[in-house]
């Protein structure tokens, strides 16, 4: 079997709030000084899900695919060190500045070009914009089925058995292969690579494909292919105002609190 894990490199979500700045003119995040981008945590968990199936004894090849700049090779290497077999970087200036629509087109084209892919594993959402569209978008584009927000993924015969996290419980679904699954943090922590694997990963070369390699029209992807328009990017002003509710007795304090809440039309 051949699995694809989609991996995105994102600005570090643990950037201290004081170091997080945006350019309100260009609607762009200003990269924080000295803080390197990281692999989106949900994508590491997606890789973990694919690796667990491989470890359970299935004959699986895992290709990790990332659309991004040269620096995204680090994210690919990280998944290779966890145990993935091959790395593929989709890097083209034409891919930059778009929305999920362009990303889906590029990733789907790559998956088609790879050929014979049995399943695609994505994180439930990228930890920067948190849209959660890429996985289902790929399924839609390729005409495959998708199961989202999985906490457990298994392969049984020619079916993929996915346990999904719902707001009020879990749901187990069976999908035909090929399919797309998006994986949630309920699956568990991604593994820590062994040093021997890190060394092996360091020696592997990451294949690079451009828009031309994928046969994509530069005008259909990236900023020019975007369907969403970002109106305004800003850091909200957080503030607080504390009112101490007075009262002689607890009953009186409670009554005063209710009065205040009613006056503010909260109740």
């Amino acid at each position: 079997m051949h699995f694809v894990v989609c991996a995105k490199q994102i600005p570090d979500p643990e950037t201290p709030p004081s170091a997080f700045r945006v350019n309100e003119q260009t609607n762009e995040v200003i990269p924080a000084q000295g803080i390197a981008p990281v692999l989106s945590q949900f994508d590491a968990i997606a890789a973990e899900a694919a690796l667990r199936i491989k470890e359970a004894g299935s004959d699986v090849k895992i290709t990790v695919v990332s659309m991004g700049k040269e620096s995204a090779a680090a994210a690919i290497k990280q998944v290779l060190a966890m145990g993935a077999d091959e790395g593929l970087l989709l890097d083209d200036d034409a891919f930059q500045g778009g929305d999920w629509n362009g990303t889906v087109k590029v990733l789907s084209a790559a998956i088609q070009k790879l050929g014979n892919v049995d399943a695609v594993f994505c994180g439930r959402q990228a930890a920067d914009w948190d849209m959660g569209q890429t996985g289902v978008g790929i399924a839609e584009t390729l005409g495959w089925q998708a199961a989202i927000i999985a906490k457990d993924v298994k392969v049984e015969g020619d079916k993929m058995v996915v346990q999904r996290v719902l707001p009020d419980g879990f749901q187990t679904v069976k999908l035909p292969l090929p399919s797309v699954v998006t994986v949630s943090n309920e699956l568990g922590e991604p593994r820590y690579p062994k040093l021997a694997q890190i060394m092996q990963a360091a020696k592997k070369t990451v294949t690079k494909w451009s828009a031309a390699d994928l046969g994509l029209d530069a005008g259909a992807v990236g900023a020019s292919g975007a369907q969403l328009k970002l109106e305004r990017l800003f850091i909200p002003q957080a503030g607080g105002n504390v009112i101490i509710i007075e009262g002689e007795t607890p009953q009186e304090q409670a009554q005063n609190l209710v009065n205040a809440l009613q006056a503010d039309k909260v109740l």
């Binding site: 643990e14 201290p16 004081s18 170091a19 803080i35 390197a36």
Partner: peptide
Amino acid sequence: EMRGHPWRGTAFERTT
């Protein structure tokens, strides 16, 4: 490895 310090989730910068 990722951030050059062991304090995950710190809200401070090296210059705070």
